[in-house]
Amino acid sequence: MLDLDHIIEDVRNCKLIPEYQIEELCRLAQELLLQESNIQLIDTPVTICGDIHGQLHDLITLFKIAKEPPQTKYLFLGDFVDRGFYSLETFLLLLCYKLRYSDRVYLIRGNHESRQITSVYGFYDECMRKYGSANVWRYCCEVFDYLALGACIVSPLGGEDAVFCVHGGLSPAVASIDAIRLIDRKQEVPHEGSMCDLLWSDPEENIPAWAVSPRGAGYLFGYTETEKFLYKNRISLIARAHQLVMEGYKELFDGGLVTVWSAPNYCYRCGNVAAVLSLDDQLNRTYTTFDSVIQGGTEVPSKKPVADYFL
């Protein structure tokens, strides 16, 4: 039997977790996530967090600022791994909290929770470096396949409105939230189609409807598409992550959509602040911004590549 509290303690201190324990952890997580639907229903109050990208120390700061689970109910919008130097610890910490407090911590999938992307952007290399084999990476990727695609936040006090949460954005193949419920999500993120779009798309002011995304996957969607989706699904807000915003959060389309970004000083290079969004029982929005803890330089492991520039 796994001692989750003990593992949480070790992960927070960046201690290496034995491979067999990670295997067990991932197996339990799969069983748990399997029971969740594509769109999770979450009651307020809840705190929504955007991309973390392996910045473990900043995640620990986030928990300090918005309170440790289970004191606060959390929804993480994906992109736990890649880019930062502690992807594995970050993902394991979130997974442990999920297993420990399954109705207080919710995780949905980001475009980086995929085999293909993690093999380019750092998570695969990190696992290889830390364990000398790809086993740990493989166990984690199997968990990725079971992560939900989105969430709907409602008030337990009733009320018409809801908040729709997703990592990237809308898809031309998805007109209603119900359509997302029909997707068979238990697979690697496809290169195209509704599941791909939900994880890859971006909002864009100044475009009428849909446009090609410069990322090479997903779409750009505009004001009218957002309005249509809000109206049709009776929601007041789309909360998403996926894009770096220097201020930590940014509302678009008359407040109908918000981007939340929770990785301060992204990639140890961008100099941005991070934010989380808390929704109360009236779905009022409170943004809390926070800065990177890492001023002393100990956060960047000295033997690994530091932030790159053109020199």
Binding site: M246, E247, Y268, R269, C270, G271, N272, V273
Partner: peptide, 9 residues
């Protein structure tokens, strides 16, 4: 306040 790119560099 939100951007300290140069300082970080």
């Amino acid at each position: 306040q939100d951007s300290r790119y140069g300082e970080v560099m």
